[in-house]
């Protein structure tokens, strides 16, 4: 494993300019009426910024394979955790009838509201 090649100062400055432009784009897009697409747009730009920082500022571009693998593993475990939890919550209530003849199962989520009157 050898040390990574140094990134030039010009490259670092242009990366920072690109990051600032992406920041402006994030804020600019938020002013548009995109609804739920705001989340996708915001996170996509965040991923792009992260890639730039990882590749240039943290010098993974010129780094060894072991370093890239270590970085990828950290991100991969987090992705597994988030994808696992999303797949759980989004599929609750699907095909909950266990046996033929039984009534379709009812899904209760934590978002189900309790009316104030029933609490009395």
């Amino acid at each position: 494993m050898t040390s990574a090649k140094q990134v030039s100062s010009t490259q670092l400055i242009w990366t920072c300019v690109a990051l600032m432009l992406l920041l402006l784009l994030t804020v600019g897009l938020f002013q548009l009426p995109l609804g739920s697409a705001h989340l996708i747009a915001g996170l996509s730009i965040a991923f792009l910024k992260t890639l730039l920082i990882l590749a240039i500022f943290m010098n993974l571009k010129g780094g060894s394979g072991v370093l890239r693998l270590t970085a990828a593993v950290g991100i991969l475990w987090l992705c597994f955790a988030i994808l696992g939890i999303i797949s759980d919550y989004t599929t609750r209530g699907w095909q909950e009838t266990l046996d033929p003849g039984l009534e379709q199962g009812t899904h209760y989520s934590s978002s189900d509201r309790v009316e104030a009157s029933t609490a009395d």
Binding site: M1, L67, T70, A71, G74, I82, I85
Partner: peptide, 21 residues
Amino acid sequence: ALLGMWIFLATEVLFFGGLFV
């Protein structure tokens, strides 16, 4: 030193990861 730090950062991702989940 680089490898040690990257391993530490990978554990930091998981440290924050619980809150992101």
